[in-house]
Amino acid sequence: MGLKIVVLAKQVPDTRNVGKDAMKADGTVNRAALAAIFNPEDLNALEQALRLKDKYEGSTVSILTMGPGRAAEIIRESLYRGADDGFLLTDRAFAGSDTLATSYALSCAIKNFSKVDVIICGRQAIDGDTAQVGPQVAEKIGWPQITYAEEILECTSQKIVVKRRLEKGIEIVEGKLPMLVTVNSSAPECRPRNAKLVMKFKHAKTISEKQAGDQDYIDLVDERPYLNINEWSVNEIQADANWLGLKGSPTKVKEIENVVFQAKESKRLSPDDFDIESLMRELIANHTIG
């Protein structure tokens, strides 16, 4: 008996490579200047899912992501690596959601799947670093959780055994299915794209993308249903709009401030012997060092 695995993934702005033009003159973030990437720890999560699929015959891996239309890219990336199908949760009503409203939407979407055994997601997304969505989803669907996973050692219908890497050590824990697992970046990297799968899925598209395309595409997708990336809006997941978006978010951003450092009067020094030596003399004399 295979496992039904759902991976939660997010497309994020690449905050690790923030260029000089990342900030607009008014101090807001210029999202357009940042490349959109597959959230790194979600790739670690995908790899854990694919390993389970390799190990337990008959298992399937579905990708679920919430985001704008272009987030379909990370679904395709997942298909290229071995995921079976993808679901894009996209609706204007989700805009402005904090982590709690996001996890509400995801939990509604998860209820749309028939019998899921394991949900695997990255521990956190690099644009917020909150690590909240995984546990918040688990609570909303009433599942237990294992966070900070480095490796899923075993996962059968009876039990799941996971090695966790914590800040100050490791733990091996055991639980029963169903289980939500969040995966650390210390877990193995995701496998690369598989050339055959790229060929198979390169035309995989959401309905919106298909509609934007030409008739040939639409015919092609009708012939090969696996090319369909499912697209769900609020209606498809039976979510209550009161719990979504800004309205459904208990946290409000009161203020965003540009950080202006308390600029100090700095002394400018050159790397020449004279400058370095007089600095060191001063530091030793006033007992800052030594």
Binding site: T15, A22, V29, D127, T251
Partner: peptide
């Protein structure tokens, strides 16, 4: 601090 640097957000939970 929020998002890629240079901004600090003040978050409140009014209700």
């Amino acid at each position: 601090p929020a998002f890629g640097g240079n901004i600090v957000a003040t978050i409140v939970n009014p209700e």
